[in-house]
Design a protein around this nucleic acid. Structure first.
Length: 452
RNA sequence: GGCCCUAUCGUCUAACGGUUAGGACGGAGCCUUCUCAAGGCUUAAAUCCGGGUUCGAUUCCCGGUAGGGUCACCA
C-alpha cells in the first residue's frame, strides 16, 4: 500500500517551528516509504484565515525544502458542496441531526478549573453527531494503544449549519478523499482522534494509522505558542539561518536514529527516518544548539557566503580584497548571518569604521621585554614595502613574520594589533591589516608611533 | 476538576533486562597562541519516588508524585 501523508495547516498564523516539524515528519515518513506528502489548507474559518498567512506558510515550507505532491491547492473553503452532501447523507441516515439549541437544556457541564470560555455567537440551530457512546481504541504508532470512552463527548457539533462544517467533519472527509494512510500530527491532536474516528465509522471510511508526535516546548516546558516564544520559521529565515540547519535541528528534536550522528542532509533524514524512534515526551526548543548546527552548515558554505550579509556601513569604501578579508574574519566568529549585524551594532567592529581611541599603555604588551617604539617603526617600514594590491593576510604575515620571530612575536605583534584595533582582544594583526587595507594600516601605525 | 499523554545529565538524546549509564549543545579546565575567535584534548553533570516480577531492572507491571495536553457553534 502506498503511503500518503499530509500537512493541513490552517492559515490563521505564520508557520511556527512546531508545525514545521510536524510537516517535516510527515514529509520524511512519506518519502522514506516512497509515498506522497500532500498539502491542504484548512481555511473553513473565514474570519481568521488570511492570505498573508497562507503565503507565509507556503513560502516557509518551500524554503525548508519540503515539497509536497499536491497538484492543485486543496482548499477546504472551496469544498462546501462536498461537505454539504456528506452532511446531508449523515442526517438522512439519522446519524446526525439538526439540533434546536434553544430547546436544549443549557449544558451545565463546562465548568472546569479555568473557565475561560471563548465562544462566538451561538446559533439557534446546529448539526450534532449522534454519538453511539462507545469506547474507541486506536493504535498510535508512537504511543501504542490509546483508549477513550466517547460518552463524555455527548452529541458533539459537527457543523454550524448545512453549509458550514466544522473542523472534525471536514478533516475526516478530506483525509478519506485524499486517501491519507497516515496521520502524523501533534500530541495535542490525541483528544480529537476519538470523535474523528466516530465520524469515520459513520461514513464507513477506512481508519488511517495515527501517530502523535510530542510537542515542542518553551523553556518553561509548556507548549510553544504564539504567546509564549513561538517564532515563525520565516523569522529564522530572516535572521539568516540556513534551511538545512533548521531542518536538521528540527528533525533531531524528538527523534533520532539511535546513532551518534548529528548532522543530516534532507536525503539522509529520509533514509534513516523511523516513526517508531520518535520520542514520546515533549522536547524543549534550544536555540543554542540550533545555532551550533547552523554554524556547522555555515562552515560548509565557506567564508565568501558571508559577503552578501556584510552591512554596507562596514564595506563602504573598501576594496573587494578587504571585504573578503572581513568575511573571513567574521566567518569563524559567527554562527548565524544576523550575528554580523549584531556585532556591528554593538560596536564590536567599530575599528573597521574609524580610527580607534585607546590609552597608549595598551600598546605595551604585558609580557613585553622591549619597548614598542622601535618595533612599530620597523613594522611600519616593512609594511610600507608591501604592495597595496597584495595587502592580504598571508602577504602581511610573510613580510612581517621573520622580523617578529626574531624579536619575539608578542613584542612586535601586540603593539601592531592594538594600533589597528585599539582593543585588548581582537583578531590577529595580519587579518586586521588585510581588513583595513594598506593605507589605513600605515596611518594607524604612524599614529601609534606618535603616542609612544 | 474530568479524560488523555509523558518522565535518563541544565537542554536534545543513546542504551533487543546484564554497560564504568554513551553522544551532542551549553559549562569548566588544559593545549595551541601576541590577545580574542577558531581548533584539539580533558572534565563535571542524569535514570522522579515506592512497591513488585526477575539471579539481575533505566528498561517489564502496579501505585504515587510531577509535568504537559485537551475539554468551542477554532483549527
Amino acid at each position: 500500500m502506498k503511503v500518503i501523508t499530509r500537512f493541513p495547516p490552517s492559515p490563521t498564523g505564520k508557520l511556527q517551528l512546531g508545525n514545521a516539524r510536524t510537516a517535516l515528519f510527515n514529509y520524511l515518513f512519506a518519502k522514506h516509504h516512497g509515498g506522497s506528502f500532500l498539502f491542504r489548507l484548512e481555511d473553513t474559518d473565514r474570519e481568521r484565515s488570511k492570505k498573508e498567512f497562507e503565503a507565509d506558510i507556503v513560502e516557509s515550507l518551500s524554503w525548508l525544502g519540503l515539497k509536497h505532491d499536491t497538484k492543485e491547492v486543496w482548499r477546504q473553503s472551496e469544498r462546501g458542496d462536498i461537505y454539504k452532501a456528506k452532511l446531508k447523507d449523515l442526517v438522512d441516515r439519522n446519524l446526525a441531526y439538526i439540533s434546536k439549541e434553544s430547546e436544549l437544556p443549557t449544558e451545565a457541564k463546562a465548568d472546569f478549573a479555568s473557565p475561560k470560555k471563548r465562544e462566538g455567537e451561538k446559533r439557534d440551530e446546529v448539526i450534532r453527531f449522534r454519538n453511539p457512546n462507545k469506547v474507541i481504541t486506536f493504535a498510535d504508532l508512537i504511543r501504542g494503544e490509546i483508549k477513550f470512552d466517547t460518552t463524555e463527548l455527548g452529541d458533539f457539533v459537527i457543523a454550524k449549519s448545512m453549509e458550514e462544517p466544522i473542523y472534525h467533519l471536514a478533516v475526516v472527509i478530506d483525509d478519506a478523499e485524499m486517501d491519507i494512510t497516515h496521520i502524523i500530527r501533534g500530541e495535542d491532536g490525541i483528544s480529537n482522534t476519538p470523535r474523528q474516528i466516530l465520524i469515520q465509522e459513520a461514513f464507513g471510511f477506512q481508519r488511517p494509522q495515527y501517530a502523535h508526535v510530542p510537542l515542542i516546548l518553551a523553556p518553561d516546558r509548556t507548549k510553544l505558542s504564539k504567546r509564549r516564544g513561538a517564532i515563525p520559521v520565516s523569522e529564522y529565515r530572516a535572521q539568516g539561518f540556513l534551511p538545512e540547519a533548521v531542518v536538521n535541528y528540527l528533525a533531531l528534536l524528538g527523534w533520532n536514529p539511535g546513532t551518534d550522528k548529528e548532522l543530516f542532509s534532507l536525503d539522509e533524514l529520509i533514509q534513516s527516518f523511523d516513526l517508531t524512534k520518535v520520542q514520546k515526551g515533549g522536547a524543549v526548543f534550544g536555540e543554542e544548539k540550533m545555532r551550533w548546527v547552523n554554524k556547522e552548515y555555515l562552515k560548509r558554505e565557506g567564508a565568501p557566503s558571508l559577503i552578501p550579509h556584510i552591512p554596507s556601513t562596514l564595506s563602504a569604501g573598501k576594496t573587494s580584497t578587504q571585504v573578503s578579508a572581513i568575511a573571513e574574519m567574521l566567518f569563524e566568529r559567527i554562527s548565524v548571518f544576523s550575528d554580523i549585524q549584531k556585532d556591528s551594532e554593538s560596536g564590536e567592529l567599530d575599528y573597521l569604521l574609524k580610527e580607534p581611541e585607546y590609552p597608549k599603555e595598551l600598546l605595551q604588551w604585558k609580557k613585553a621585554t622591549e619597548e614598542p617604539k622601535s618595533h612599530l617603526e620597523k613594522t611600519l617600514s616593512i609594511l610600507a614595502n608591501v604592495s597595496p594590491e597584495n595587502f592580504t593576510k598571508s602577504d602581511i604575515k610573510d613580510a612581517l613574520m621573520p622580523y617578529a620571530e626574531l624579536k619575539g612575536k608578542g613584542n612586535v605583534l601586540w603593539p601592531m594589533r592594538v594600533a589597528l584595533s585599539g582593543k585588548e582582544q581582537s583578531p590577529d594583526p595580519f587579518t586586521l591589516g588585510a581588513c583595513l587595507g594598506k593605507e589605513v594600516t600605515l596611518v594607524r601605525l604612524t599614529h601609534a608611533l606618535a603616542m609612544v
